[in-house]
């Protein structure tokens, strides 16, 4: 565990909590892509199946349970409790265009051709692109609430910190996971355009709105 990995995990946790609180406090999930949240619930479910087979540490187990629990709670709030506020008309990204190729790729490129390992690989590839329905929704409506942009910022920051963590682990531990690194780089690149808008607009007190 190094400082980049830890702050990455905490940044990820912050993103998840910010989103839950935003929906809970405003009693509304307007502007939030339910599809991205379902994809993240799938990511955590398929990745953390090793909760049943391997014990790594109390930290590892607790964080996994918190991530899974929060992601299901978020999906529940969007599709059940505050369903009336869900903006389904703007959440039109075709998720099968992500899930099917990602599923195929995880069968073809993995560390080990075993069920748990293929599901882990699937989760890594899926996480890299799971935010696309949310970014697509923002590009469609042309704007995002400031609190939603904070959520996206922490979610992107988490992966950027993980990249530094992997450089660190490569130099100091000789650790190198090509699948996680390539997917992590792709995932971080997807946030670059958003990071630019976040720094140039949101941090200067303006609402994130895209030119028509």
């Amino acid at each position: 565990m190094n400082i980049f990995r830890l702050t990455g995990d905490l940044s990820h946790l912050a993103a998840i909590i910010i989103l839950l609180l935003k929906i809970w406090k405003s009693r509304s999930c307007a502007g939030i892509s339910g599809k991205s949240q379902i994809l993240f619930a799938m990511v955590f479910t398929t990745r953390y199946l090793d909760l049943l087979t391997a014990y790594i540490s109390l930290y590892n187990t607790s964080m996994k349970i918190i991530y899974i629990g929060c992601s299901y709670a978020t999906v529940y709030l969007i599709y059940a409790k505050f369903k009336a506020t869900y903006d389904g008309n703007h959440d039109t990204f075709r998720v099968e265009f992500l899930v099917v190729p990602v599923g195929g790729l995880s069968f073809l490129v993995n560390h080990d051709f075993s069920p748990l390992e293929i599901l882990w690989t699937f989760s890594i590839y899926l996480e890299a692109v799971a935010i696309l329905p949310q970014l697509f929704m923002i590009s469609k409506t042309g704007e995002a609430e400031t609190i939603t942009t904070h959520y996206l910022f922490f979610l992107g920051l988490y992966r950027a910190l993980y990249l530094i963590n992997w450089v660190w682990r490569f130099y100091f531990e000789g650790f190198f996971d090509m699948i996680a690194i390539v997917a992590g780089v792709v995932q971080t690149i997807l946030y670059c355009d958003f990071f630019y808008l976040y720094v140039t607009k949101v941090l200067k007190g303006k609402k994130l709105s895209l030119p028509a």
Binding site: R5, D9, H12, R47, D50, T53, A54, I56, S57, N60, M63, K64, Y67, H111, D112, S114, L116, E117, W120, Y162, N165, A180
Partner: peptide
């Protein structure tokens, strides 16, 4: 290998 891989990251 036949041993399951240990993924210690989240």
């Amino acid at each position: 290998g036949t041993e399951p891989l240990n993924h210690d990251e989240l």
